[in-house]
Design a protein around this nucleic acid. Sequence first.
DNA 1: GCAAAAGTGTTTTAGCTACACCCATGT
DNA 2: ACATGGGTGTAGCTAAAACACTTTTGC
Lengths: 233, 233
Amino acid sequence: VTADLVILTIRDSVLTVLVIKRGNAPFRGAYALPGGFLRGDESLERTAARELAEETGLDAATLHLEQIGAYSAPDRDPRTPRVVTVAYLAIAPRVGAIAAGTDARSVEWMPVAKALSPEVALAFDHADILADAVERARAKLEHTTIATAFCAELFTIAELRAVYEAVWGHELDRPNFHRKVTLAEGFVVATDQKRQSRSGRPATLYRAGPATRLSPSMQRPRTDPRTRAPGSS
Amino acid sequence: VTADLVILTIRDSVLTVLVIKRGNAPFRGAYALPGGFLRGDESLERTAARELAEETGLDAATLHLEQIGAYSAPDRDPRTPRVVTVAYLAIAPRVGAIAAGTDARSVEWMPVAKALSPEVALAFDHADILADAVERARAKLEHTTIATAFCAELFTIAELRAVYEAVWGHELDRPNFHRKVTLAEGFVVATDQKRQSRSGRPATLYRAGPATRLSPSMQRPRTDPRTRAPGSS
DNA sequence: GCAAAAGTGTTTTAGCTACACCCATGT
DNA sequence: ACATGGGTGTAGCTAAAACACTTTTGC
């Protein structure tokens, strides 16, 4: 049993995932998600947290870490005996360049769109895992306050909006977003500090509020179903 | 690695789960969720489907079967080597008395509220698993059309409403429910058949529609959060 | 003054709630 | 006739979408 990690962050307004280049067979030379084997009597959560620290130097205690699910297709790993893996989603705040490459392995931040493209072709079933994790993150932005986990301790509403736009891949109305976020109870709390960008009015800095569930929830703009699948009946 | 099953159904308007009485150590004599070990080169989904057929005679191909997650706490099972389990949620339609007791083991339908009560004290961490599965089912009723999985092929709107009320543990407004369900595109499709209850106007029979996502989604009446947990900051 | 970014107001419309009301059947 | 459950209408409220507008900074 292994634990694999989908570590997401926002870099240059793009949803990005941490991948490693495999040094060993199978899939030597291919990109893959970081992960490792369950040890002795630790839980899978602890395995995931340990791998997270090893790959990025981030402390799992301060991060959002959540299980995605178990993957067990018999052909997912050519090794024998077969390996069942449990995937975890970690959300890293956009703190400068995270130590990508703490240990000897080649570690790299890659835009999610690129990692899912056929040219990259992640090892094992890691493309499925990544897609599931991203979909989970998208869904959780609607109903929970985890979007703040992508931000530093202090952030502006524009930065928070950039998180939503990067994860959902969709532009949001700036004025309405501002209102919803600031009026949602316990989502963000204003500080008395401001941050000046190159030009324009300085933005108020906020920190994450105590709420975990969002109500009313954010509305993900729906990719109009009528334009995708003509109703079959 | 084992697969454990949370098989839910509605019996007499009560959300009910299938439990077995354990015949072997550990937890001999205690109630537990059905489950079994992963074999040879089958996937965990197949393990779960096989167990489902063995315990209830139901065919997984016709049922909703969905993974809940992996459970790996080192103390969850006193056996050595430790057992990691992956839990699955199955939704069984309310078809008469399902063959509870196909094989020799003692199999029993039990209301979820009773199964989660301290008197029953399910074996291992099965109470946690059951609670997670029920919460998953509750959430999915909001955004998807799985409520129809609890119903027979033909059902009335009142029966569908009974599903929502049993799973959510909350009464819904009858007229508004009728409208939402019948107007939600692809949720239910009317047949030309009707069903007569003891008295009153005969109800139109519906079958499940092609949609899987519900939009607009159903609104779960919110157990007012202010009365449960005063925000800790 | 002008550009740029933050933040507020306002109008329109969709959808939910609550409840009154009508319909079709058995007794 | 009337009880019983199925189904429809409607008034009022809440919140979301769209977009015009004001505020505060750098140049």
